[in-house]
Design a protein around this nucleic acid. Structure first.
Lengths: 355, 355
DNA sequence: CTGAAAGCGCTTACAG
DNA sequence: CTGAAAGCGCTTACAG
């Protein structure tokens, strides 16, 4: 492996000049530059990043924005851990992390944090773009200011983000359809549990429902699927609405919860001893895990939330420091979680490699 | 963050002496040592590993040993990729990788490679311990020679390995039982497909079968489960034996294949158009994926084979370079793979972080 | 436009 | 037992 010094000697220039060419900095004559570039190419030069990082002093500021989680039982606790874990690994390169959190049901809280981020003027942002219109506008501002950004969990299909890390929501809904059909043995009616507040703020919910319905229209077009709607999923409303809905239609054998709140539904089913109704939902956070273990939630499609946070930061950092262009999309896996494997997930990425 | 220099100044010694204390090298008076250690503790000193690695010259030799894979469609191709990917990341620290491969049905080929490894006399070994007795003896030799080693995929429960990375086989069999019962709707008889050669060389197979049977004895004790045995699973034998077995007992609705060769069975079922028989197997390598996509294999329990190779090398390397003590066990997840999610697995670890 | 030199934080002979 | 100095490979003011 050649070093900058080797290249410099062969080109009969100083190492400083080679460094300038490598980083495409100005102040090198076209002739010298060409000569050096040829050698760089010839030897397929890769600079020693250890030495580079050691000598390099530029500090990067990265902001992150995700929903706050009240406890570690909630979904967003995991991406948060992923973010922190990634920062822990890269802090030695002089990266400054700024964490922002918003209330995912409150547009104002979201907006307030966006403003704080703009005020901070970071080099990059990793965030979960809730609230479609607001996020699109924010993305435009970032692009204009040349602040790099990565979406996690929710994709916005704007052109100017660096990358998106998350699940294909349609597919995950489709898979949920299959799993619910399997555990109800293709019998009885089904219902989708919809919360208006979720739908408004979280773009993936709608795609999940589409995927779910698509599974049935393709495989069991005769299936009767109801929709049970709430303003907001919480124990009181769930009790009220579900009692009514399930009493009215006692042929319902399976419930699909396209948000991460399946545990709220499970809690209700347990309390009224409705043990013959199957539930499929999303995400294996602690709140859900409790009911997965009891078998009240039959299946959940998980998406390795830790990795979403972890990868988001890593990708952004590598782009900033090394100009390494990430993929446009990193698909989170569709992880099927059920009673028997809920405890067996190994969080690979937590094995931090402390370079 | 304090540096060695800071500590040295405060202790009124040279940086060399601080370095000696940090690494617990001899040649420091008890008094000086204590003084320095106190400061180290006080500031919770962590040395800069970038600088350390840059200045450090010791080379490490790591050997790996896994079954050879004829094509990238086979199981062992993934751990192999994991091994290589890890080495690619750490080669800049001066690690020398030596890859060894054996025929997993041939004890002699295994032994031959063990000898080669001993001749190489590496600092560490990452390997899949097939052939129980031979592996146990090998482990003893390694321990005696103070060569560190990590098991991947198969656990030997010897006391002297650094770590084991792989699945809990019993649980994975148990989960397979549940999935097979689910897709057969708890109807009909089941059969386990056993290959003597696999059982002899691969210790996990037996535990998987135990787990599978345990699921039924706990949940459906009346279930009739046959065993169909082969000398070795290959298309010719499968055809011969299965034709006979499935004709004889046409109440069999589900097959459990406790090895990674479910595709061989699926191939047969497809060729004779036995579409009403469900199959559950192991591992989502390409050969199986083909039949998972067709729906002929209903489910497979995967174990993130890439990570096993990747983590194995990383853990060993970190121990060697940094004396970082790994966990005793890294449980690979029980990943349920079916038609709808087989394409959606994101291999996080392939996003190499090129420090 | 280019080079010489200092420095990042640690490790390692070497000298005493 | 301990220190001074050189060096790992790169980056960065500074000088010209």
């Amino acid at each position: 492996m050649k070093t900058i010094k080797d290249i410099a000697e062969e080109a009969q220039v100083s190492t400083g000049t080679v460094d300038r060419v490598i980083h495409n900095r100005s102040g090198v004559s076209a002739k010298t530059k060409e000569k050096i570039q040829k050698l760089l190419d010839k030897y397929d030069f890769e600079r020693n990043l250890l030495a580079s990082a050691l000598a390099f002093k530029r500090k990067y500021v990265i902001a992150t924005l995700i929903p706050s989680s009240k406890s570690k039982n909630e979904y967003w606790y995991s991406p948060q851990k992923g973010l922190k874990s990634a920062f822990k690994e890269i802090q030695k390169y002089g990266v400054e992390a700024h964490y922002f959190y918003f209330n995912k049901f409150d547009l104002d809280s979201y907006k307030k944090n966006l403003d704080l981020i703009l005020k901070l003027n970071p080099d990059g942002v990793v965030f979960a773009p809730f609230f479609y219109n607001t996020s699109v506008a924010f993305a435009k501002t970032l692009a204009k200011r040349n602040i790099k950004f990565v979406y996690i969990n929710i994709n916005l299909e704007t052109a100017n983000n660096l990358s998106f890390i998350g699940q294909d929501s349609f597919s995950s809904g489709y898979l949920s359809g299959k799993m619910l059909n399997l555990c109800t043995e293709n019998k009885g009616d089904l219902a989708i549990i919809l919360s208006q507040k979720n739908i408004d703020s979280h773009r993936a919910i709608t795609s999940r429902v589409e995927g779910f319905l698509n599974y049935f229209s393709q495989n069991h077009p005769q299936k009767n699927i109801e929709k049970i709607s709430f303003e907001n999923i919480n124990p009181t409303q769930v009790k009220k609405v579900l009692t009514k809905a399930l009493l009215k239609n006692n042929t319902i054998k399976g419930l699909f919860v396209p948000s991460s709140a399946a545990y709220t539904v499970a809690e209700f089913l347990e309390s009224v001893q409705l043990t013959n109704i199957h539930v499929v939902g999303f995400d294996a956070h602690q709140n859900n895990a409790k009911y997965i273990k009891k078998g009240i939630i039959d299946f959940v499609v998980d998406q390795n939330p830790f990795d979403q946070g972890y990868l988001g930061v890593k990708i952004l950092f590598e782009y900033l420091l090394l100009k390494k262009q990430p993929n446009e999309t990193y698909n989170s896996p569709l992880v099927i979680v059920t009673k028997e494997n809920v405890d067996h997930f190994m969080v690979t990425s937590t094995v931090e490699f402390s370079t």
